[in-house]
């Protein structure tokens, strides 16, 4: 684990305890959730810009709550939830990254 992700992780833990979600992701990038954004924008290929889908085949993840996204990704990751694509993708992320990306989609453009 890099120093940066260690710091972010620690700050998530501390701030969650304090209930201060809005600053939980503060880092050197002026308060931006860098990890969440980096991963979040890469989801747009299938899920649409900012998680807004323009396709009839897929629901917008921007409509889902932060908790729902975390739960879904963790279930895909563990294999508890069957999938075709997301089961393969979710295994590529740590729990910290999953928390960060869910937070990104819950807050982007809102």
């Amino acid at each position: 684990m890099t120093l940066k992700s260690l710091i972010t992780t620690t700050s998530i833990a501390v701030c969650s305890l304090m209930g201060l979600h809005s600053i939980a992701f503060a880092d050197s990038h002026g308060g931006a959730n860098h990890m969440g954004r980096t991963i979040g924008v890469s989801c747009a290929g299938c899920h649409g810009t900012d998680g807004v889908s323009h396709s009839p085949h897929l629901r917008s993840i921007s409509e889902l709550s932060e908790e729902k996204i975390v739960t879904a990704l963790k279930k895909f990751k563990s294999g508890e939830r069957k999938g075709s694509i997301m089961n393969r993708i979710a295994k590529g992320y740590t729990d910290e990254q999953i928390t960060a990306v869910a937070h990104y989609f819950a807050t982007v453009n809102k």
Partner: peptide, 9 residues
Amino acid sequence: PGEPSWVNT
């Protein structure tokens, strides 16, 4: 620049 991450399908 921060840590990168990529995905492909």
